[in-house]
Design a protein around this nucleic acid. Structure first.
Lengths: 240, 240
DNA sequence: ACCTGAACACCGTTCAAGT
DNA sequence: ACCTGAACACCGTTCAAGT
């Protein structure tokens, strides 16, 4: 979370020039992203920021995907987990935590995109998992089911944020795509695609926030109503 | 779908060398992807395949994202929509269509990744939407709700496929990430992360297929149990 | 009017060679 | 033993200049 104590207040010069350690690299990457956007957080640009060659980074980071995952884990420090320990309806509190997670990702949709492929596995991510699991447990969701449910909830939030990665730099492209889909939906033939024609723009309607919220509730309700297929537990009577 | 009748059995030479049209470009892109994988479907490589310079492609395709969306739409021709018109339980048939969609994407997870950001908007995609909407309608899901539900279902399937985009080329990276998360989960402190510790590897457990199927049913059950917040219809009394 | 060669401004990753 | 300069093998996109 950029909250690591600065390694040491080195001589003078610029705001620190962190030592070449994994933490220093990630910290610099986060700063670079805040300053110039994720698309500038490349091995080469980052190395330049650290006054070295790109090859040096590979001593501490396996590849770009891992770097992005580490950056995301750092950002996850900003997720508000306090509702997990508060009182009140557990569903509301669950949604509040998920909203906070989504807010963080919405500020960096490109990172959300990476997260779908290379999940973080750091401290902050574990804290988030723990908070979600405790809320589901409070809601009476059986443990094994909660293990899968957490995945579903985070995947939905992450994917929704990732969808906004289009036109992070150039919004023109994103509008182009959207307009094209809107046009395709409007221009649909009433007898070959009756349902689409009947719905019209309804398919694209609604503020993102309302859809997101509805999605969370769909998932929560669905989880409550859908047992896991066959817990392969040692003492579960097989009902085939 | 590569099912366009070959443009014309041109002279001799290679399998066609399609004319420089949008369709020809997409067709060549699909062939290139099947032959060498999505990561080779770049503007430059594709131009080379078409015996021209990359600049020429920009006359027909706005950018790489749009190209990928067009390729995906083409692939969507392979989705089996027949269950939509069959008889039997509508849920089963809905899941069958979604499974077919997922199968197509699983063969090209990188494309699924693109699809989250740049959705296709072509003929095949519309056919898929229509099939899903008709099944939801059959199941008694109100129209406005179905419009949102379709999005949720496709997003879940797409995101699940996209998650497999790691290590499409080099599976080593993907295993590295997975192993790291597994290690993080195992090494968790029992008193700081009690729920994670209790679940252990349960969090990563289960064959992907079972989780996918469970996810579909969670969504379907959730949709059935979750009305849309406030249809902003013209005659809906505002409740602020 | 339409098309495109060539250029601009970058990438990730590896490895041989230095300290 | 550890680190990294330099190279390899690429990218997307634009635009001035040609036909």
């Amino acid at each position: 979370m950029t909250a690591h104590p600065t390694p040491r207040p080195s001589r003078r010069e610029r705001p620190a020039k962190p030592a070449l350690t994994r933490d220093g690299i990630v910290e610099t990457a986060v700063a670079l992203m805040r300053a110039e956007g994720l698309q500038r957080v490349t091995m080469r640009r980052l190395a330049q920021e650290l006054d070295t060659g790109p090859a040096s980074l590979y001593v501490y980071v396996r590849n770009t995907a891992e770097l992005h995952a580490a950056v995301l884990d750092d950002l996850l420090g900003a997720v508000d987990l306090s509702p997990a320990k508060a009182s009140g309806d557990w569903r509301d509190r669950l949604v509040r935590v998920l909203d906070s997670y989504t807010d963080v990702l919405f500020e960096h949709p490109g990172l959300a995109r990476s997260a779908l492929v290379a999940r973080p596995s750091g401290e902050r991510y574990l804290n988030l998992l723990e908070a979600l699991l405790s809320l589901l447990s409070e809601g009476g969701v059986p443990d094994a089911r909660a293990a899968w449910a957490v995945d579903l909830l985070l995947q939905f939030a992450t994917a929704t944020a990732a969808e906004h990665a289009a036109g992070e730099k150039d919004p023109t492209d994103a509008e182009g795509e959207w307009a094209e889909l809107a046009a395709a939906l409007r221009g649909v033939s009433e007898h070959r695609h009756p349902h689409i024609a009947a719905l019209g723009t309804e398919l694209l309607s609604g503020p993102g926030e309302a859809r997101l919220n509805w999605g969370f509730h769909v998932l929560i309700n669905g989880v409550l109503h859908t047992p896991r297929p066959e817990a392969p537990g040692p003492d579960t009577p097989e009902t085939s």
